[in-house]
Amino acid sequence: MSEPSKIVKTIASIIFPFTMVFGIYVILHGHLTPGGGFQGGAIVASGIVLLLVAFGSAEIAKRVKESHLSILESIGALSFISLALLGLSTTFFYNFLAGSNFIFGRIPPFGSNPGDMNTGGVLPLMNISVGLKVIAGLSAIVLVLSLFARSRKQRKR
């Protein structure tokens, strides 16, 4: 297997931080602009896939273990369920933070408005936890698939 050329590696390492920043922006602004946890998580995972393509799976597997990724995914799922359970005094999935003037607790004026980060109740927190879950899940899937292909190729040799 031939190594990717220097051009591919350089361009990938330049583009990667921008992909990360854009994905995190989409996750954090999920309650104001189009996007949300799933979409932003997919964008960040695509950045990680770009690194996998450019640098090879062995280089990435030295730094990221898939067991760590599955722990991160479990943390995302557990925080999502516990955020849903925190509203249980009214109903499951009750938005207990909206209108409470606590963190993310403001109500925006009705109609068109420029958008305030400090609104939305539990929705931004749920976006963050779901985004963490999707990032870890998709990266773990692609990393394990590429490691599997690599181990097969080595055994054939």
Binding site: L32, T33, G36, F38, P108, G111, S112, G115
Partner: peptide
């Protein structure tokens, strides 16, 4: 159906697409 910087003169709710099919399509994609 997003209120951030909505174009002028959009009638609510007749000028917005239905949000529930979009949300369920997101579920279906994942």
């Amino acid at each position: 159906p997003i209120y951030t910087n909505l174009p002028e003169g959009t009638s609510i709710p007749e000028g917005m697409t239905l949000p529930v099919p979009q949300a369920l399509t997101l579920t279906s994609i994942v």
